[in-house]
Design a protein around this nucleic acid. Structure first.
Length: 391
RNA sequence: GGACAGGUGGCUGAGCGGUCAAAAGCAGCAGACUGUAAAUCUGCCGGCCCAUGUGGCCUACGGAGGUUCGAACCCUCCCCUGUCCA
């Protein structure tokens, strides 16, 4: 415990030194609140307000880092791309002596740094980051693989009394970890090849009819034209010789022994779009093309992350089917749409406390720290919905 | 100055007398999601109205006129844009 406190203090200082005057001011303020213990006021958080002056007790969070605790804290930062999640995660990790765990499906691949928005070493500011670069460029990483690895990392952090701070944009991976996956087969490429052969010859609807014969309930849930999901469902039914829907009913096992404190970032849409635009331009100026050439050279054309947003366009550019300008504009538009899809996914995530700004905005950081203090203090807390309106 | 080609909803672009509020794509908006998830897929998309429908009204295919029962589509003039000849 003493150790954690010391670490916490040191790292918070380091954070203050490493930043500009605005955030230095913030840091000293949070240090002040960290130091004090709150006599009350923790329970008066209204449903739609972040409590005004709940002192943040780093102790209350750090004290809970007991390897044997049934509710070991786990911070999760969700939000659309470019909302400043990674920066906030580093900030939180520094403040509480934590380590960051990624849940982004592209950042898990080695060699895809610029286009995936991976934080550079300097930006990580000494905070260990897990589940980055754990897959080879030519490999196929999956939600199941992610879950297995993430569980190990969580147990590792727990045994070392470190606070896990999870961040990323892949809602499915997060859910796979937190809620678990059903007991089903991993993917089978041969079977899939056969199935997609059917789809090509007889149309996507054919596969859907096939699925309906095996498992009516699942077929009803999946749109006939969604070949990707239809194929997976068929794969499950054929390999297991059981209905997908029955397997689902048998349940799934989520992480045990952790209590997730979920922070959602939902910055104003127009501003987010602006950031996405700028960020995309920087990627194209800053080496995404080189990454693509490199990947094409070593992993070959089949590399999964080469299909990811930005990489897809950069590749088209390298191969000459798109101009540089087109590639940028297309990436920007599609990234905006992606951000939208992320919001519709995360909005349904349970018990997220939403903040209407960017994770690297000192004001938002402040609100997050305050909320964490109140959330840690009591077992129940109010959750408000995300604001992701246009304008 | 002359000869062609063309001007269509936010953009690209089909339509060339009625079945056209106008194909398709893009963008935009909303949504779904259990091992490819930065993926894959769905719905809406001129405005207003009764908000039930193969519903009503208005505004729209560069501008102004005309022909016609009827025009984005045909004719005349004008204004733009592109290519070519001077």
């Amino acid at each position: 415990m003493v150790l954690s406190d010391i670490e916490c203090g040191q790292e918070a200082d380091a954070a203050a030194r490493g930043r500009g005057p605005a955030s230095a001011a913030l840091s000293s303020e949070s240090d002040a609140t960290i130091a004090s213990t709150s006599p009350g006021g923790d329970d008066c958080a209204g449903p739609h307000t972040v409590p005004a002056a709940v002192p943040l007790s780093a102790h209350s969070l750090v004290e809970r880092l007991d390897p044997n605790a049934p509710d070991y804290p786990l911070i999760v930062v969700v939000g659309p791309t470019a909302s400043g999640k990674s920066a906030l995660a580093v900030r939180l990790a520094l403040a509480f002596g934590g380590e960051v765990i990624n849940f982004d499906s592209v950042q898990v691949y080695r060699g895809f740094d610029i286009g995936s928005g991976k934080l550079g070493l300097e930006e990580r500011r000494g905070v260990p980051h897990h589940l980055l670069d754990v897959a080879e460029p030519g490999a196929r990483y999956t939600a199941g693989e992610y879950r297995r690895q993430a569980l190990k990392v969580l147990e590792d952090l727990r045994s070392r009394r470190k606070l896990p701070v999870m961040t990323g944009g892949t809602g499915l991976y997060l859910r796979a970890l937190l809620l678990g996956l059903f007991e089903g087969p991993a993917r089978s490429d041969e079977l899939r090849r056969r199935l997609s052969g059917f789809a090509e010859r007889r149309g996507r609807e054919f596969l859907h009819r096939m699925l309906a014969r095996k498992d009516r309930e699942t077929a009803a849930r999946i749109h006939p034209r969604d070949a990707q999901k239809v194929i997976r469902a068929l794969e499950v039914c054929l390999v297991e010789r059981r209905r997908f829907s029955d397997l689902l009913r048998e349940g799934r096992e989520g992480v045990q022994g952790f209590r997730a404190l979920k922070i959602g970032l939902s910055p104003p849409r127009a501003e987010l779009a602006r950031r996405i635009n700028v960020r995309t331009e920087r990627m194209f100026a800053g080496g995404i093309m080189e990454e693509v050439r490199e990947a094409l050279g070593c992993a070959g054309a089949a590399s999964i992350p080469l299909e990811a947003l930005g990489y897809r366009q950069a590749r088209a550019c390298v191969e000459g089917t798109m101009t540089h300008e087109e590639a940028i504009r297309d990436t920007q538009a599609q990234t905006r749409q992606y951000a939208k899809r992320q919001m519709t996914w995360f909005r349904r995530e349970a018990e997220v406390q939403w903040f209407g700004g960017f994770g690297d905005d000192p004001v938002i950081e402040q609100q997050v720290f305050r909320w964490l203090a109140s959330a840690v203090a009591g077992p129940s807390y109010e959750v408000r919905g995300p604001v992701f309106s246009s304008l």
